[in-house]
């Protein structure tokens, strides 16, 4: 039963349901295999898949299941009792809410940082060259919705630069926004540098010119089936292997 559970990218509710089901069928109590459910912000999907695989190699029997989604959606699921062992959020406020709800087992740690980039589809038909182009009403402009970490950071960056964007859509998360830019449906948007790096052949990226980053925090959770394994995973992410993978994916050091 548990051999089928390798690291799989799962998003949102489906991942939670699968996580709960696997806990119910008893994988967590199997002495040979120890399932660790990790909730991670969607921008961490590639990095955490690699880190999780490396962790499994070093910890025989550990089975890392990574569920990715918007930080705030994951936060809501954790507070509502989802059986996650570790939470990695893409900003401080979502982690603060989980801490306040009493769901963390240790002090959260900043393990990486991310910045935003102005991104246009390959070919750049709109002639985008920087942050000020987000104010152009002749372009189709997309942002992450307010309340989502990338959306809040986008508004801070635009506010700092004094640019009032001419927004055509507030996408529910960074990946949804990126795919609309890759497809050429949007002419320009603000996404994480790491997302831009993941689609390097399909987009052109420009610096925002604003020095603002978002911290990524990680903490073991109260509901972890195996608290030691959860703590070990957190140490692994903040340790040399985790840092190397994160830096490779375009994250800045904490």
């Amino acid at each position: 039963m548990c051999t089928a559970q390798r690291i799989v990218r799962r998003t949102g509710a489906v991942g939670v349901v699968l996580g709960v089901l696997s806990a119910l069928v008893g994988c967590g109590t199997d002495s040979d295999s120890d399932t660790l459910i990790v909730f991670a912000a969607s921008s961490l999907v590639d990095a955490f898949a690699e880190i999780g695989a490396a962790f499994e190699e070093q910890n025989a029997g550990a089975d890392v299941m990574i569920t990715t989604g918007g930080s705030s959606a994951l936060r809501a699921q954790i507070i509502d009792g989802a059986p996650a062992a570790v939470f990695a959020s893409a900003n401080a406020s979502t982690m603060d809410a989980v801490v306040e709800a009493g769901d963390t087992a240790a002090q959260p740690e900043v393990f990486a940082r991310n910045r935003l980039e102005v991104v246009a589809p390959a070919g750049n038909a709109g002639g985008v060259s920087g942050l000020s182009d987000l104010a152009r009403s002749d372009l189709f402009v997309g942002l992450c919705a307010a309340g989502v970490p990338c959306g809040d950071l986008s508004r801070d960056v635009l506010g700092e630069a004094g640019v009032t964007p001419s927004v055509d859509t507030d996408e529910p998360d960074a990946r949804a926004l990126l795919s609309k830019i890759v497809d050429g449906e949007l002419d320009v948007g603000l996404v994480y540098a790491t997302d831009a790096a993941s689609a390097v052949d399909d987009v052109v990226a420009f610096a925002t010119g604003v020095d603002m980053t978002t911290p990524y925090l990680i903490a073991p959770l109260d509901g972890a089936a195996d608290p030691e394994l959860a703590a070990a995973f957190v140490d692994f992410v903040t340790g040399p292997v985790g840092r190397a993978v994160l830096s490779d994916k375009g994250f800045a050091a904490p």
Binding site: A73, A76, G147, V148, T169, D170, E171, K180
Partner: peptide, 22 residues
């Protein structure tokens, strides 16, 4: 897409609000 006043219908507004204003 999703933009208040142009394309944001109730289900979209509910989904976005679940993130920040339950």
């Amino acid at each position: 897409g999703n933009l208040q006043g142009r394309t944001q219908t109730l289900p979209l507004a509910v989904f976005v609000s679940l993130e920040n204003d339950r």
